[in-house]
Every structure is written in C-alpha cells, then in structure tokens.
Deep mutational scan, measured.
Amino acid sequence: GKELVLALYDYQEKSPREVTMKKGDILTLLNSTNKDWWKVEVKATANDKTYERQGFVPAAYVKKL
C-alpha cells in the first residue's frame, strides 16, 4: 500500500517545488531516497473542491507512520 507520513511541524513552502503542511497533517509519501527532502502528496480543499499537490518537504519535519 501507500506509505504515509505525519507532519511534526508546520512548514511553509519557500519555492514552487515545495508544499505547505500543518502539524498533524497526514501525507502520502512518494519518494524518500533523498535524506533531506522527501516528496509527498498533499490533499487540500479549496472552494469545496479537493485537489492534490505533489512537492517536497524537509525530511526532519515528518515521520513515517
């Protein structure tokens, strides 16, 4: 199945390749080969529509579930 990670801290994206997350968010882990930056998929809701974004977050800010 898919691997999930838990956001340990809030993170505000600093570039278009990154994604914003809030502490407590559960994210889908896409790639953890880089030890510093993990690629995740974030589900977000805006205007009653759910959309998914993929991007990088600092590996130290998340932990595998």
Rank of each mutant, 00 (worst) to 15 (best):
Tyr9Phe: 12
Val57Trp: 02
Lys2Pro: 13
Asp10Arg: 03
Ala60Gln: 11
Trp37Val: 02
Lys23Asn: 03
Gly24Thr: 01
Glu3Met: 11
Asp48Pro: 07
Val5Arg: 00
Leu29Met: 02
Val19Phe: 09
Tyr11Thr: 01
Ser15Gln: 06
Asn31Trp: 06
Lys63Cys: 15
Glu18Trp: 03
Ala60Gly: 11
Asp48Asn: 13
Asp48Ile: 06
Lys39His: 08
Lys22Ile: 08
Lys22Tyr: 10
Leu8Pro: 00
Met21Val: 10
Lys49Tyr: 12
Ala7Ser: 05
Thr33Val: 09
Asn47Glu: 10
Leu4Val: 08
Lys22Val: 08
Leu30His: 03
Asp48Val: 05
Asp25Asn: 05
Pro16Asn: 10
Glu41Gln: 12
Asp25Met: 12
Leu30Asn: 00
Lys35Arg: 10
Val40Gln: 00
Gly55Pro: 01
Leu30Gly: 02
Gln12Asn: 13
Asp48Ala: 07
Tyr9Thr: 07
Tyr61Trp: 06
Gly1Cys: 15
Leu65Val: 12
Asp36Leu: 13
Glu41Thr: 10
Ala46Tyr: 15
Thr45Ala: 10
Ser32Phe: 05
Lys39Asp: 03
Ala7Phe: 02
Arg17Met: 11
Gly55His: 03
Ala46Leu: 14
Ala59Asp: 02
Asp36Gly: 08
Lys64Thr: 08
Leu6Ile: 15
Thr45Trp: 11
Leu27Pro: 00
Arg53Leu: 07
Val5Ile: 06
Ala60Lys: 12
Tyr51Leu: 11
Val42Pro: 06
Lys49Asn: 10
Gln12Ser: 10
Asp10Thr: 05
Asp25Gln: 14
Thr45Val: 13
Leu27Ile: 07
Leu8Trp: 03
Tyr9Asn: 08
Lys39Val: 15
Val19Asn: 01
Gln54Thr: 11
Lys49Val: 15
Tyr11Arg: 03
Lys23Asp: 02
Thr28Ile: 15
Glu41Met: 13
Met21Leu: 07
Thr45Gln: 12
Leu4Tyr: 15
Lys43Tyr: 13
Arg17Gln: 09
Ala59Gln: 05
Val5Gln: 01
Gly24Arg: 00
Asp25Gly: 04
Lys43Cys: 14
Trp38Thr: 03
Trp38Val: 06
Thr33Asp: 15
Gln54Leu: 07
Val62Ala: 02
Asp25Ala: 07
